[in-house]
Design a binder for these strands. Structure first.
Length: 530
RNA sequence: GCGGGAGUAACUCAGUUGGUAGAGUGUCUGCCUUCCAAGCAGAUUGUCGCGGGUUCGAGUCCCGUCUCCCGCUCCA
């Protein structure tokens, strides 16, 4: 069963080298994270799979990689400069928040003059450009990658001789100065996007919008996020972004966070190309755009059949890489029972759990919501304690649980049992797993086993599969280690290997082993990765 | 930004009325070990978040500050 608490995933990500807080040695920087050795593999694999699916396996797509710094006018006409820039103040008395330029040093709500300094609520980061740091020579770090595509629309369409419909795909960093970054890598200030701008004939946009929704759901399923875990949210008109006619948000049910957006699929109409175009009045635009006297080109498409210039509509599927990595980890996470816990110890945990639940009922500091959430969860665990033992940790991570005195006792009794009888395993789809195979000698004090294992690992690596060698523990410990990072196959060199050149290959999910001849290993592993 | 909680070894946590910092796990070395976190012996790590104060003496008491978590707020 997938992660029941975000903490489980955060802790695993840190412990095993997936994700670290940025510049941690100096106390970190809020809303910024680094990918470690395994995280970067997972992330790269996901991005490569997205690229393969959307660029290589379609015949209506091109890729680009635009710069992060762009001419400021891009952000003026995209609408971001206007909608991303507000100086805000907080009222210290009633805690309301106002735009500084809308009030006169006085809180409109309670009349207090005890206000914080105005802070620019500037979603866009600025950096100075050129040798002189005067106030006018700055550029924004892009808050979305999309504009790099729109700005290159004509370059791509003309150099690649594309006809509608076609799309441009891009992956890259974007930056937003979030007021309150939180929830691990879910809301961050520096993040990576995977975006497509798909250009279509006006009038066919709604049909393409639906088609892209379907295509994107298929992709999510292919990397291990089943449709049943995604809710398609048809964003209400009043909540739509300034550029959108209609948007589907794909919402994944994250543990702890609940349903949150992993991808937005927006119908951006002719807003963007229209906004960046000259001679707007001659284009018959449907979107409301700001008059543009700076652009030097018409962002149009000449239709050879209609024999006239039109402004394409745009469908934009846009996903965040970090949120995707997080969803994959949450969905793949599992704490699985591999042995039956000792009956007496299990009973002790059961009693501790019951006294925990009684304390919850009696505690006066907890809200009714917290009480019922804790009780409900606790009862569910108690109903089948031996299977659910590993979930006690996430019960104790729930809101309010830290108020209960016996929580520590419960954890103290449950944790050793979980360590002894459960394994943590990431059921990551093999094609995106950070490590494809690990190679072990059955015994590390036997030179023949060690050398054979090392040479197998090297041969496999030369085929392009990320593989590792490990002998720093007994075989069972080595298996568990790989389970925890989602390695789909473990190859063990044993004494029979030295006689007949076969090895055992152990499957991560079933823990079953098969014997495979060394020369057939690569083909066997490739088959597993499909 | 406001309110509440928490910061002690790589991790999970003990640490009594203030008296020289502990356990388990992990990691490393050696022995042993023929497939699922085995055993034995040894080694390893701390400015007790940071800065001040009280005290003969502070992990412990006081003040300030930073970071993280939860709730509110905000939100691409």
């Amino acid at each position: 069963m997938p992660a029941t608490s975000l903490d489980q995933v955060v802790s695993l990500a840190k412990r095993r080298g997936f994700i670290f807080p940025s510049s941690e040695i100096y106390g970190g920087l809020q809303g910024v994270f680094d990918y470690g050795p395994l995280g970067v593999e997972l992330k790269n694999n996901i991005q490569a799979d997205w690229w393969r699916t959307n660029v290589y396996e379609r015949d209506d797509m091109e890729g680009i990689d635009a710069s992060i710094l762009m001419n400021r006018l891009v952000w003026k006409y995209s609408g971001h400069e206007e909608t991303f820039n507000d100086p805000l103040v907080d009222c210290r008395k009633c805690h309301s928040r106002w735009r500084a330029d809308h009030i006169n040093g006085k809180c409109p709500n309670c009349g207090s003059t005890d206000l914080t300094e105005p802070r620019p609520f500037n979603m866009m980061f600025k950096t100075s450009v050129g040798p002189v740091a005067d106030p006018d020579s700055f550029a924004y770090l892009r808050p979305e990658t999309a504009q790099g595509i729109f700005a290159n629309y004509l370059n791509v369409q003309q150099t690649m001789a594309r006809k509608l419909p076609f799309g441009i795909a891009q992956q890259g960093k974007a930056f937003r100065n979030e007021i309150n970054p939180r929830n691990f890598i879910f809301r961050v200030r520096e993040f990576e996007q995977m975006e497509i701008e798909f250009f279509v004939m006006p009038g066919t946009d709604e049909e393409w919008h639906e088609r892209w929704l379907e295509a994107r759901l298929q992709w999510w399923e292919s990397i291990g996020i089943p449709r049943s875990k995604i809710q398609v949210y048809d964003v209400p008109k009043e909540d739509l972004a300034h550029y959108s006619k209609r948007t589907f948000d794909l919402m994944y049910n994250y543990p702890t966070l609940g349903y949150e957006e992993i991808e937005g699929i927006a119908n951006r109409t002719d807003y963007d190309l229209g906004s960046h175009s000259r001679d707007q009045e001659t284009l018959g635009l449907t979107a409301k755009v700001h008059p543009n006297n700076d652009s030097i080109v018409r962002m149009t498409y000449f239709d050879p059949e209609l024999k006239r210039h039109i402004v394409p509509f745009v469908i934009e599927p846009s996903a965040g890489v970090g949120r995707c990595v997080l969803a994959v980890l949450c969905e793949a996470y599992d704490e699985q029972k591999v042995k039956e816990p000792a009956a007496d110890k299990l009973e002790a945990v059961g009693q501790a759990l019951q006294s925990f639940l009684k304390s919850v009922g009696r505690n006066e500091k907890l809200s009714e919501e917290q009480k019922s959430a804790l009780s409900e969860r606790g009862e569910a665990i108690a109903a089948n304690l031996s299977e659910n033992l590993a979930q006690i940790e996430s019960l104790l991570a729930m809101s309010g649980a830290d108020q209960i005195e016996v929580a520590k006792k419960l954890r103290g009794q449950a944790q050793p049992l979980v360590d002894e009888n459960f394994r943590t395993v990431l059921h990551i789809k093999p094609k995106i797993a950070p490590i494809k195979a690990a190679v072990f000698p059955l015994k590390r004090n036997n030179a023949d086993l060690v050398n054979t294992a090392k040479s197998i690992r090297k041969q496999l690596q030369l085929t392009g599969m990320r593989t590792v060698y490990d002998d720093t523990g007994a075989i069972g410990k080595l298996y568990r280690r790989q389970d925890e990072i989602g390695t789909p196959n473990c190859i063990t060199v044993d004494f029979q290997t030295l006689e007949d050149q076969t090895v055992t290959v152990r499957d991560r999910d079933s823990m079953q082993q098969v014997r495979v001849a060394i020369p057939e290993l690569e083909a066997y592993l490739r088959e597993q990765m499909k």
